[in-house]
Design a protein around this nucleic acid. Structure first.
Lengths: 339, 339
DNA sequence: TCCCAATTTGTTAGCGCTAACATGAAAAAT
DNA sequence: ATTTTTCATGTTAGCGCTAACAAATTGGGA
């Protein structure tokens, strides 16, 4: 039988080789590496030495195939270009990496159907768990998650049903900024929204209820644009808004990008902030503190949301918890010169 | 032998099951999915139908284990919070995803040793290729790459040696912005640098050589801080610089974050831009166009660098190319009101 | 007509690892 | 001293897939 040798990736050193060199069987090497307390200390020491010496690199595919556990978590976020999700990603990484889990990142581009397609595609990696942004997945998505009994944690918002989640109330946050503008004596407060994902819509609802409660809600002041947000769009929307409603005295921008563009345009147009017009943003990006005047915003615990969601998922994976967990990490109103 | 059934991930449908249902062997299913032209059209059609019907999901681990190809690329970037690398990542994704490759993202936190550790750790996934930021890896890193014959493409800069790369000359870009400030009549031009990674140092070199050529280089105007850059740092460094050198009439900030902070502080202090002080940034982030005054910067093709590097790597993987390739995608000076 | 090549499908074995069961040795309990 | 329990290690088989080889089928061309 003179078969051609197969291609080998990595160093080509296998667990069996390590075992032979250490005078034990492969399974003992496996145990020394992954469940150290099931091997005597002396032997473990020796095995680790041989591992080092031979430059052994475990083969994750083989491990995964044999154990039916991938030590992999699928993370679905709507965008890579939005700092908000990158911050959450960093939080997730800070928890999963030390725990020996690999994260697979799927960029849904804010699309339900792409989200579903990504889930399907990444199922090939048989992820042990799932971290998703938002709660509004397609029915087919939910069905797959349920059918495969895939442990999942939902990020950035709070669920009304039995899904575990980590986030804060987008509506309450929207109401909070609106309430702040009201407290500053503003009464003709507009809402500038872009992208119109579920979070923006919820902030809009918070804005609405706060204004309705104060008796000064005017639907004509809600300006919504489904395109991705940008500073340019903020500037453009400001111009359009003021052209239609010169009496507008306050603006709640659904995110800081819009707000920064709007502030810059006010600066160019010589509009006095906050006297003539107060502007509030959302997310409290780094740049919010460095506009002229500095931008009031809602600070959101993105990193911590990611980290907490990852921790919650790991608990589920380890079977440490039975109860469905929901974690409200809140938000904070950052008042600066723009209001 | 009544063994307990093993845990199964995924749907539990295997290639064998699909084969049975379609009346063929497993290998034919494999071929129908991965090398369609080796199966007759009619049969392929039937197999794909059964795949759909049974909800078959291929098991990537098994594929990888059997074929010694992982269809996975390791991407190492210094930071997740810097838009520059996220943009490159998006470019990489846009190429790898359609090609059926999975990207594993490693965040080196700007650390050589972490970079090495990540490479070692991710070797467990036996990646088919490697995309790395910069050229200054540790010797041990290079040794592993060489020893494993791991195809690699280096991003963001141009190599002097035989390593394939996609980027632009950081030095030339640094010289370009400095030359622009000189052309504006500035002579006391400072350099504000943070993080001090290899790219910042090269921009500094470009700055130096441009000033030396013009005969107005003053080492006392080079302000370097190894901490991560931020807008706050830009503001602080501006204050310190002007306190020490009130005659300074131009500043080249190694990135836009510093520049935005510096501009905001000038605004606060009533310093006239660009007459009294001209400020230039680097990378041309979105926010650069929206400061007051708008920030001049060096626009860099980050997305395209990532995409081109990924394409180059795929060529290597397919063995389509023998020659080492180097791709200079250049940069562009964006002149705005701040200079 | 037969033969050879090209094409299509199947058989066998094994990738590297770990679950489950088995065994042997040491420690604890009787 | 004997039995029971615990602990440490080994044996066997198989996870799901694909490389290599083998066989069967088809289509020309001499």
């Amino acid at each position: 039988m003179s078969r051609k040798p197969r291609l080998r990736s990595g160093t080509g050193v296998t667990m069996h080789d390590v075992g032979q060199a250490a005078g034990v069987s492969a399974i003992t090497v496996s145990r020394a590496l992954h469940s150290p307390d099931r091997v005597s200390p002396a032997l473990r020491e020796k095995i680790l030495q041989v591992v080092e010496q031979l430059g052994y690199v475990p083969n994750r595919s083989a491990r995964q195939l044999a154990s039916a556990r991938s030590h992999t978590v699928l993370v679905l976020i709507p965008s890579l270009s939005n700092t908000v999700f990158i911050d959450a990603l960093a939080g997730i990484e800070s928890v999963l990496q030390p725990a020996g889990y690999q994260m697979l990142i799927g960029n849904t581009h804010y699309s339900d159907s792409e989200e579903l397609a990504l889930l399907r595609a990444y199922l090939q990696h048989s992820p042990d768990g799932l971290l998703v942004t938002g709660l509004n997945q397609l029915p087919a998505f939910r069905q797959i998650v349920a059918q495969q009994a895939l442990p999942a944690v939902y990020m950035m918002d709070l669920s009304q049903d039995d899904r575990p989640c980590v986030g804060f109330s987008q509506e309450a946050a929207g109401a909070s900024m609106t309430g702040h503008l009201l407290a500053r004596g503003k009464r003709r407060i507009a809402f500038l929204g872009a992208q119109l994902d579920e979070r923006v819509i919820k902030r809009l609802h918070g804005y609405r209820s706060a204004l309705q409660q104060a008796g000064c809600h005017d639907p004509a002041l809600e300006w919504l644009n489904p395109s991705p947000s940008s500073m340019q769009m903020g500037a453009d929307m400001l111009d359009a808004l003021l052209a239609a409603h010169p009496d507008c005295d306050g603006i709640f921008c659904c995110n800081d990008d819009l707000a920064i563009g709007a502030i810059a345009r006010c600066q160019q147009r010589g509009i006095a902030l906050p006297e003539q017009l107060a502007i509030g943003g959302f997310n409290d990006l780094q740049a919010a503190a460095w506009t002229t005047p500095a931008l009031s915003s809602i600070a959101t615990p993105r990193f911590e949301i990611g980290a907490a969601a990852a921790r919650m998922l790991l608990q589920q994976l380890r079977g440490e918890t039975t109860a469905v967990q929901k974690l409200d990490l809140g938000f904070q109103l950052q008042v600066r010169a723009s209001t």
